[in-house]
Design a protein around this nucleic acid. Structure first.
Lengths: 262, 262
DNA sequence: GTGGATGTTCCACATAGTGAAACCGAATTC
DNA sequence: GAATTCGGTTTCACTATGTGGAACATCCAC
């Protein structure tokens, strides 16, 4: 059960983007027939779609291997997107000093279609490799940053966001139902920080604070991530104030240099 | 004189991408009317296009300011593209140690539609920067990496690539004609490295070496960039062997873990 | 050879996108 | 406070564009 296409819209453009997503989702170059199997479109349609995308530089075709991979044109487009639509450029100095001060990995994320999109990451001195990198997406319902942002969503938006979650039990601690998550979100809202208690990856915990706009909307979140072998949840709780104040600083910086409401 | 749309293809998808490019090209959120002025499409058409893209998450609409900016969905797509289609993941350790050894800034670039696309950068001072610089595009005809790659292009591909250049005289040293560049490219091919002799920015010079596949095709290039105030061209020439050997190492690494021909 | 995979092309059909023009509403001007 | 302008949005007849079933072409493997 792949997480149903939530954004799949009508129109040719939507179909084209679905194909792009599909290619990107496989973590390696794919053959036409693989795509065909995964795609709802008939052969000829998919063929033209893929061919168009290739000519447009959005896909790269390897003649020898007969495989398709996401094209580099995307990278240059994303550059613009990252600079304009992400908090990263504004937040960078702040997360830099935060990670410096704490000696732990700091993530900056934003909500995109109910999913968490990591837009920047500052690695601690010794890089423990884990699931995350700028551009990577993660689930909203079982990550610290995800919950921090969901907690500050207007009711209606929260409903749609929750409907977009996979509710897959990554670990024994994962919320698998909107109900239980909702009650935690109330807590998060009250406390101002969210915790990931090994809900996504075993052994990985984090504290996250939302970055709130003047109107109280979450425009992003940042988190300090660590492993249970290094720190306990109580340790993280002690970092919360520091985290909150950094989040506040970023919010202020974002407000100054004009920023979107959603 | 914006550098004419070289890749502008037919089809609805092409149009949609043109719009994306347009939005990305402005370095700030744009209003509908601005786009309208820049776009060849009639009002209604552009409107639907923009609206579709917004619903698909490729553009972000700011209700208050009534402006459009590239959407974050691009960032996640690009992440996949960067990991699969760029040399960056493979080359990172090599450019790391190169920049470490030389204490200078190292760039990794690939050719995309005649333009140079920087896919990674290792700054002497600061550590990891993802899209901050990666994703940026530059001209092919007046950068070190550009010339290094152009020099190893098959004839036909070179012709089309040269046709896509702007030939704008950024400085007094810039090639403004295919002819003079072609003779330099022969030199570059013979020597194995290309120099940027303040052709793009005054005071900025670099040495670049192509990363060649087994078939002799340039799959990328890397460069050491510095300023005339820090180093001379002769200094850079002394770094060339080191640069070449790193380029060779990367090529080998790329060949091992299978890689595209073009 | 025959069978069964691939990837590519054809073509009648209608869906999906087009764009001139009308419409709306807010900010300006008279 | 009616009239004008200027953004942005909607309508609708038209047809260009994309659709997809099916036939075709290759390339193996047996």
């Amino acid at each position: 059960m792949n997480s149903a296409a939530p954004r799949t819209g009508e129109g040719t453009i939507g179909k084209a983007l679905d194909v792009l997503d599909l290619v990107a989702a496989q973590e390696r170059p794919v053959r036409f027939s693989e795509l065909l199997a995964l795609s709802p479109h008939p052969k000829a349609t998919l063929y033209r779609l893929v061919q168009n995308l290739t000519h447009l530089g959005m896909l790269r075709y390897d003649v020898d291997r007969q495989t398709y991979a996401p094209g580099l044109r995307l990278v240059s487009l994303a550059h613009a997107a990252w600079r304009q639509s992400s908090l990263a450029p504004i937040a960078r100095p702040h997360i830099d000093s935060l990670s410096q001060a704490l000696g732990e990995t700091v993530h900056l994320a934003q909500l995109d279609g109910g999913q968490v999109l990591y837009v920047d990451k500052r690695n601690a001195a010794d890089p423990i490799e884990m699931f995350s990198q700028a551009g990577k997406v993660g689930p909203g319902y079982c990550t610290g940053v995800g919950k921090a942002m969901l907690a500050h969503l207007p009711d209606e938006a929260l409903d749609t966001a929750l409907a977009q979650q996979a509710w897959f039990a990554h670990t024994a601690h994962t919320h698998t139902h909107p109900g239980t998550l909702r009650t935690e979100l109330a807590e998060v809202r009250a406390e101002g920080v969210a915790y990931d208690r090994e809900e996504h990856e075993p052994g990985i915990i984090c504290v996250a604070a939302p970055i709130l706009s003047e109107t109280g909307r979450a425009i992003g979140a940042l988190s300090v991530t660590t492993s249970t072998s290094r720190k306990s949840l109580d340790d993280l709780a002690r970092l919360a104030p520091h985290l909150k104040s950094t989040a506040h600083d970023i919010a202020a910086a974002a407000a100054n240099w004009q920023f979107p409401s959603q």
